[in-house]
């Protein structure tokens, strides 16, 4: 992969990608998709936190960037077909 050869991202860039993913995840109107995206983001970053060699860090970062583009696109598409009723998990008091 061409982008894997690029210089590895800084700590702030990684945190910024993490924040962007979480922020975009929050835009999903469907509770299940929203929670899954958040969970998947957190799990992905936690599982890669111990990466040390430059090439795999760059590859993981490039992959994260691609995922962010997908999440952004899907958030728009899902908003066109937003569920009409809320999930029971979203009700504060029942």
């Amino acid at each position: 992969m061409a982008s894997a050869a690029a210089k590895s991202p800084t700590r702030l860039e990684v945190l910024s990608l993490f924040r962007s993913l979480l922020r975009t995840a929050h835009e999903f109107s469907d509770y299940n998709v929203r929670e899954y995206t958040k969970r998947r983001t957190i799990d992905g970053f936690q599982s890669n936190r111990s990466l040390s060699d430059q090439q795999s860090i760059s590859a993981a970062y490039a992959n994260g960037k691609e995922q962010l583009a997908i999440v952004k696109r899907q958030a728009v598409i899902y908003s066109l077909y937003a569920p009409k009723v809320k999930s029971i998990m979203e009700l504060k008091s029942v």
Binding site: R11, L15, S16, F18, R19, L22, R23, H26, I42, F45, Q46, R49
Partner: peptide
């Protein structure tokens, strides 16, 4: 907590207080 957890907490605070904290 590590830096990832801190980002998560700040995001949770944004949700609680209903505004966006710039990076």
């Amino acid at each position: 907590l590590d830096s990832l957890d801190t980002v998560e907490i700040v995001m949770a605070l944004e949700e609680e207080f209903g505004f966006e904290i710039p990076d």
